[in-house]
Design a protein around this nucleic acid. Structure first.
Lengths: 328, 328
DNA sequence: CTGAAAGCGCTTACAG
DNA sequence: CTGAAAGCGCTTACAG
């Protein structure tokens, strides 16, 4: 069963070094090539990555740090990274931090120790400790989801997505508007989306806009939504994520409100479920899987020390469904 | 900087083997211990895991094979595995096969080559090639989600969950029933659930039951549901998974049917979303995260060659919500 | 184009 | 308790 390079060499009747050269695309005569190929097929041989890494002092593994596994954004991004990495014969190792910032730091160091070729961090917050860690480990790090001036980042176009969303709902005649956001420690979701939205409506004097804040999870959003509806009676609640929108919808149903007649709702993300529910949720779709692919490409380029932009911005698309009433 | 065991040996004035022994808790004299410790602190040394693995011919990494990353069941199970493995200082390496059976086989061999301590396979179908692979790699393998007579498995109680579901909907007065299942190549979901359901209703002569089959994804289920509704007009569609139920709900809405008045629907799984939508979906909840934990415990036990049951059955719970009408 | 040999950093019998 | 030596599976100069 598990065969080594020596086995192949023996079967093929050549030296180990020749097999190694064959494997790594070095110059090998046609005849020998054939023999080696045959031996490999026969045994189902594939090289031991540990031995390879030991020599190379470096792996072809990309360590990926995610705050959670059970989110649409995370899993889609991971799938994208994984797919692309497979293309270029790299492996992905996932570290799930369960939304614990200190675990992110630990993972960075531990990945470095394990000689990862590079690290992709699906970031939520970048603290001083993160920066220290990035500086300490000498391997390329790519941020995804958050931008930082000193490190290469790939972000979604949060600002413009929110800007377009603002324009869109204004165009639908909404004037009494609640924006349900998240903590500003999260620059991308907490600040950029809010700012983009504000920008879109900043000179609309006829609008009454109130800003609220909640957690990322559905139950929390549901509770906040209840308060908002009771005390403000907006015609629409613009939510900073699809999950939050789901919580708002739940609250609305429980309060006997009909969507979108009594209350309009929008989200950000483009999760699969937003299309399945009824009425469908109008949302700003981000391309997580594509972003993951792009991230994988980028980290590989970084590893190969290619020159490149510090910041990549992934696109978005406003998806119009039934959750926004036309008031005009 | 990156120092090796030789550096430490030199600094401490001892042999490499002594350092190695120190590191692995072998017997080392107090004085030497001190010297080594000092040298390690001085250099910030930590062993190269690849060299360790190469020698030890075994890692503390558990390879986990999942058919997809973007499913509630998969991510919850992974989270459970990961949490438990962290407890016992093991790592989890995920291999995503994108529902390609041949990739599962590849992953098994590749994990073996990488000297994984054990393998957890979130199985859908067990083919002859799987069995060959299990036999060929000499490391412990644990199946999760599917049962096999020759290999340790952890399964959900598909049969009884379906049995209870059958009883439940019969108790609600449903007599014209469509069961929307999946391929029988998937023993657990395709056969066990169907059988449990059949068993519950086998002696109810007043029932008209029809069995249908669809794919695991929402759009496919949606299309099949349309056909079922048009040609059979059941009072309820019992779906083999929550995702399928979601597709059925979507179809029903699009056809202008009201849930549960015009059509009742149930699922299996207990995905978070089933609680959030309105009306909430009645479903048989499985405990994926707990099952993942249990799986991690089991694989560790297997690695340590503890005696244990070949089969572990994880529990379920029928969650009653609003998607089933009471016809009595 | 091909092979013999050294070495990556560690562990593990085997002596002492 | 401690050390010298062999070896894990691979790669990489170096000869030929």
């Amino acid at each position: 069963m598990v065969s080594t390079i020596s086995d192949i060499a023996k079967i093929a009747g050549v030296a180990k070094s020749t097999v190694s050269r064959y494997l790594n695309g070095g110059s090998v005569g046609e005849a020998t090539k054939k023999k080696i190929q045959l031996a490999i097929e026969e045994t189902g041989y594939s090289p031991n990555p540990f031995a390879q890494s030991l020599k190379a002092k470096k792996t072809n593994i990309i360590g990926t740090i995610v705050p959670r596994l059970d989110s649409y954004a995370a899993s889609q991004t991971l799938i994208g990274i994984d797919e692309q990495l497979k293309e270029v014969n790299c492996q992905m190792l996932i570290s799930n931090t369960s939304q614990k910032l200190e675990r992110e730091i630990e993972s960075i160091y531990s990945f470095a120790k394990q000689k990862m070729a590079g690290i992709i961090l699906m970031a939520t917050e970048i603290t001083e400790l993160h920066i220290q860690a990035f500086d300490a480990v000498k391997i390329p790090v790519l941020l995804i989801g958050q931008e930082h001036k000193d490190f290469p980042s790939l972000v979604h176009d949060d600002f413009h997505a929110a800007y377009e969303m603002g324009k869109y709902i204004f165009g639908k005649g909404h004037r009494k508007i609640a924006y349900l956001g998240v903590t500003e420690r999260d620059i991308a979701v907490g600040i950029k989306r809010k700012q983009g939205f504000q920008k879109a409506l900043q000179d609309k004097e006829e609008c009454e806009i109130r800003f609220y804040e909640t957690e990322f999870n559905i139950p929390a959003a549901q509770i906040t939504a209840q308060t908002i509806i009771n005390e403000f009676h907006p015609s629409i609640i613009v939510c900073a994520t699809d999950n939050i929108a789901l919580g708002v919808l739940k609250a609305a149903y429980l309060m006997g409100l009909s969507i979108p007649k009594d209350l309009s709702v929008t989200g950000f993300g483009g999760y699969e479920i937003t299309e399945v529910i009824h009425p469908g949720l109008t949302t700003a779709k981000f391309f997580y899987r594509e972003a993951g692919k792009k991230a994988a490409e980028t980290i590989v380029d970084l590893i190969n020390e290619k020159q490149m932009d510090r910041l990549t911005i992934s696109q978005f698309e406003i998806i119009e469904r039934e959750s926004v009433d036309n008031l005009l």
